[in-house]
C-alpha cells in the first residue's frame, strides 16, 4: 500500500498508509466531538481532508476565488524575533508590501495592556506614523495578561501560590480583583490608541490566565463598545477551552470555565467584539492528520454558530500547525487550505 508523507504535531516526519491516515482523521474528529460536545466531521469532510493531506505536492492551497483574509498578530515582534533587524513601522511595511498581509497589528515588546499604560503617549505617535506609512487596516494590540496583576508583578496575592496551599477562597478573591484592574487598563489603553486612529483594537491570547482573563476581556470589550459604538475589536484566544483558574466566574449569566470555541464566540459577540479568533491547540504526540481533523471539528462548530467574522489562529502550535520554531510549509499549507475550505470563516 502506498505510503503518504505526514508529520507529528512537533513536525517530525512520518509515513502513513491510506488506512492509517483515514483512521487518524476519524480519531481526531471523534476526540474533538467528544470534548466539545459537537458533531463529528461528515464523510465528505473527511474525504476532502484526506485528499488535502495525501496530496503529493509540498504546498497545498485553495481554488482561485476561495482565498481568505490573512491577518497577523504581533508581527512587529515576530519579525525581530527571527533576527530581521527592522523597526516596527518597517516590519508592518514588510508584512503589507512583501508578505501580502491583509491586516496587521502594531504592538509593543511587553505585549500586555498593563505595561502599556505608562508608555501609551509614546505609542500613540508611532501608531500615527504607522498609519501614514501603510494602507491595510492597522490594529493596535496586546494581551490582557492577568498574571501581571498578582504578586510579584502586581498588587494582589498570587493565586498560583494560594491554590496549592488550599486557599481557594482567597485565590478566587484575588482573581476577581485582578479583573477590575485589567478592565480599567484595557479600556484606558484601548481608548487612547483608538483615538489615535487605530483601525481596531486587538485583545490577543485571551484566556491565557484562565477564566478571569476571558472575563476581563469581555467586560473591557463591552465598555469600549459602549464608549465607541463604531470601534472594531478583535478577541483572539489563547487556547481551545477556557481554563478554570477561578472556576465560577460568569459573564452575563454564563459560566466561563470550560467553554469551547463555539460557546466562546457567542459571548464575544454578546460583549460587542467585531472579530473572533478561535484557537485549537496542536498535540505534539499525535499526527498532523489527527490534529487537523480535530482542529477543524472544533472550528466548524464555531463557524456554524458565529454571528461575527471568525479568523481561526493558524500559528505555531495551534490550528494543527506543528509546534516547531519553523513550522514546515507542507503542514502549514495543508492546515490552512483545509481550514479555509471546510470551515465557515472569514480569515486566518
Amino acid at each position: 500500500m502506498a505510503k503518504i508523507f505526514s508529520r507529528y504535531g512537533d513536525g517530525t516526519p512520518l509515513e502513513l498508509d491510506e488506512k492509517e491516515l483515514m483512521e487518524e482523521l476519524h480519531a481526531g474528529t471523534e476526540d474533538a466531538a467528544d470534548r466539545a460536545k459537537v458533531s463529528t466531521l461528515t464523510d465528505d469532510d473527511l474525504k476532502h481532508l484526506y485528499e488535502i493531506l495525501a496530496s503529493p505536492y509540498k504546498f497545498v492551497s485553495v481554488e482561485p476565488g476561495k482565498e481568505v483574509l490573512l491577518t497577523y498578530d504581533a508581527g512587529t515582534l515576530k519579525i525581530r524575533r527571527v533576527g530581521v533587524n527592522v523597526d516596527r513601522i518597517q516590519a508592518l511595511q514588510i508584512y503589507e508590501k512583501i508578505m501580502g498581509a491583509d491586516t496587521m497589528e502594531l504592538c509593543h515588546v511587553d505585549y500586555s495592556y498593563k505595561p502599556l499604560k505608562p508608555i501609551v503617549t509614546m505609542e500613540q505617535p508611532i501608531l500615527e506614523q504607522a498609519l501614514l506609512s501603510t494602507h491595510i487596516p492597522l490594529f493596535y494590540g496586546a494581551m490582557p495578561n492577568l498574571g501581571l496583576y498578582s504578586q510579584p508583578d502586581g498588587p494582589f496575592p498570587n493565586p498560583a501560590e494560594l491554590l496549592p496551599n488550599g486557599k481557594i477562597k482567597e485565590a478566587r478573591e484575588s482573581l476577581e480583583q485582578t479583573v477590575e484592574e485589567a478592565v480599567r487598563d484595557i479600556v484606558f489603553a484601548g481608548s487612547a490608541m483608538y483615538e489615535s486612529g487605530a483601525d481596531g483594537i486587538n485583545l490577543d491570547s485571551v484566556g491565557a490566565a484562565g477564566d478571569a482573563d476571558f472575563l476581563a476581556s469581555l467586560m473591557a470589550t463591552k465598555k469600549l463598545k459602549e464608549k465607541y459604538p463604531d470601534i472594531c475589536i478583535e478577541i483572539g484566544m489563547a487556547g481551545e477551552f477556557i481554563l478554570g483558574m477561578h472556576g465560577e466566574l460568569e459573564f452575563e449569566g454564563t459560566r466561563l470555565a470550560g467553554l469551547y470555541a463555539h460557546d466562546q464566540v457567542r459571548l464575544a459577540a454578546q460583549a460587542g467584539a467585531t472579530i473572533f479568533g478561535p484557537v485549537v491547540n496542536t498535540n505534539t504526540t499525535e499526527t498532523s492528520a489527527w490534529n487537523l481533523a480535530r482542529a477543524i471539528t472544533f472550528m466548524k462548530a464555531c463557524g456554524e454558530v458565529a454571528e461575527i467574522p471568525i479568523h481561526p489562529n493558524m500559528g505555531m502550535g495551534v490550528g494543527a500547525v506543528p509546534v516547531n520554531d519553523h513550522p514546515p510549509i507542507d503542514s502549514v499549507s495543508r492546515a490552512s487550505a483545509a481550514m479555509t475550505s471546510l470551515v465557515r470563516l472569514d480569515g486566518l
Partner: peptide, 11 residues
C-alpha cells in the same frame, strides 16, 4: 477537557 477546574485539580 475543561470539565474540572484548577481549584479542584489542586485539591
Amino acid at each position: 477537557r475543561g470539565e474540572l477546574f484548577l481549584p479542584e485539580l489542586m485539591q
